[in-house]
Design a protein around this nucleic acid. Structure first.
Length: 433
RNA sequence: GGAGAGGUGGCAGAGCUGGUUGAAUGUACCUGACUCGAAAUCAGGCAUACGGUAACCCCGUAUCGGGGGUUCGAAUCCCCCCCUCUCCGCCA
């Protein structure tokens, strides 16, 4: 959520910055709502003040045993108009909230302007792209070749965009996640967390998934008493539960920065991506991800973003996977982000880099929705800044390991850092089952 | 699933026969006095959001789990819901 003050004070400036990401701010609508709100709100509060004062007088008069019919008659006149306004006011405020809720964050000044990924800026490439003296296979062929990747059964169990891992591949998947969590917890100072995978609507609103992106989520209705239904949502990323830990909190200054790492499954409906990445486990309804989340002092958030990005990169470096870092352009960034770096890993079979991590600074955009604050040096509550990044998407990392570590015979060499998690195993080969 | 208790300010804890209570009191915290310093003691301060405003001053509104109702007026009365705790049953 943007600061409504920014829209009141400099709507043209805000509109210009939003235009950079292809969002057209309806200025007239805002001004109309704002004018309406102002009239109704000030009048309502004026009448409420009058009513409160009269009620107090009545109270005092009755205590003294005086007659109150005059004052009562006076208040009665306030009643009708106030009753109407008290119905209208929340409606106008809701409309304003709905209007603000679907406005994306403003890009940071360093974000390249552009409307498609073509305008993203490559920051650096790290690691050498491997060369093969045989025809490379993609992860699907490799996984099915060694007998641990079974899409047919996954389809039977659930449908398209699910996968089933077995044996060494399943263990490699688990090894990757554990290696990532351990690295961040032991070496990068993150607190490991275990969080709910089903969250309420307020949490989804806090991090920006609702109200605009409900179609991307899996909703789980839950029958409550007397016919009511309360919705749970399956988390699309650990960002949601972890970031919302500070929702409606005022944390002490000393507790910043807060750094958390969580390994969770992520669930996405992938509405609107029909036909894209249909082969393999690149784009799934369910995938695992190790997520880094930070809550920091506003002065520190951009330094923190560089740090967080570095923590994600360390994983790729330790796995010896070649990658590049992209700074997303204004039009390619997510709804809530002010600045985003994507990390793309080299996939030999696709002969290209594919996204494996996304690291963003949301500034106060999420914090404002969540009312997540800290007590600043003056003792006043102030919105904190939130950041997060994948470090990394486990499924895609598995894909990258398979493809980059493949051998001519179809076996997979296990990266050295993972061997302790694999019982010392050095290579995945075909299992006769 | 059955039975009971309860949800009030950072914490503890009054109020709940409706009225000048945004809320006693204690404690924590901040400031000042006393002290060489500390403790103790004394005095004062100490919620958040929103609006009027450019404004951390000032004024107003809202907030005592959430929503609705009764009333001139509700933390206090009524209805619905949610949550927590205790005991029993069941259970990964």
């Amino acid at each position: 959520m943007l600061d409504i003050q920014a829209l009141r004070n400099d709507i043209d400036g805000v509109a210009a910055r939003l235009a950079a990401r292809g969002f057209t701010l309806d200025k007239a609508r805002f001004q109309e709502l704002e004018a309406e709100r102002k009239v109704i709100q000030t009048r309502t509060q004026e009448l409420q003040a009058k009513r409160n004062a009269s009620a107090k007088q009545i109270g005092m008069a009755k205590a003294k045993g005086l007659d109150t019919t005059d004052i009562m008659a006076e208040v009665a006149q306030v009643g009708d108009e106030l009753k109407q306004l008290e119905v209208k006011l929340p409606l106008v405020l809701q409309e304003m909230d709905a209007f603000l809720s679907v406005i994306p964050n403003m890009p940071h000044s360093s974000v390249p302007v552009g409307l498609s990924e073509a305008a993203n800026a490559e920051m650096r490439r790290v690691g050498d792209v491997p060369t093969f003296d045989f025809d490379v296979k993609d992860h699907v062929s490799l996984g099915e070749g060694i007998g641990g990747l079974d899409f047919d059964t996954a389809i039977k169990l659930s449908g398209a965009r699910f996968s089933l891992l077995k044996g060494g591949l399943a263990r490699l998947h688990r090894a990757l996640a554990q290696f990532m969590v351990d690295t961040h917890a032991d070496q990068h100072g993150y607190t490991e967390t275990y969080v709910p995978y089903l969250v309420n609507a307020a949490s989804m609103r806090g991090t920006g998934q609702l109200p605009k992106f409900e179609e991307d989520l899996f909703r789980v209705p839950r029958q409550m008493g007397e016919g009511g239904v309360q919705n749970f949502y399956l988390i699309p990323t650990a960002e949601v539960p972890v970031t919302n830990m500070v929702r409606d909190e005022i944390v002490p200054l000393e507790s910043l920065p807060m750094k958390f790492v969580a390994h969770t499954p992520c669930f996405r409906s992938e509405a609107g991506s029909a036909g894209r990445d249909t082969r393999g486990m690149i784009r799934q309804h369910q995938f695992d991800k190790v997520e880094l989340v930070q809550m920091v002092h506003p002065d520190e958030s951009y330094a923190a973003l560089e740090g967080l990005l570095g923590h994600a990169e360390v994983i790729l470096q330790k796995l010896n996977l070649p990658y590049r870092v992209m700074k997303l352009c204004s039009g390619d960034m997510g709804f809530s982000a002010a600045l985003t770096y994507d990390i793309e890993v080299w996939l030999p079979a696709q002969n290209t880099y594919r996204e494996i991590s996304s690291c963003s600074n949301f500034e106060a955009f999420q914090a404002r929705r969540m009312q997540a604050r800290f007590r600043n040096a003056n003792g006043k509550p102030e919105l904190l800044h939130t950041l997060n990044g994948s470090a990394l998407a486990v499924g895609r990392t598995l894909v990258a390991v398979l493809e980059n570590y493949q051998q001519a015979d179809g076996s997979i060499v296990i990266p050295e850092v993972l061997r302790p998690y694999m019982g010392g195993l050095e290579k995945l080969t075909k299992v006769v089952a």
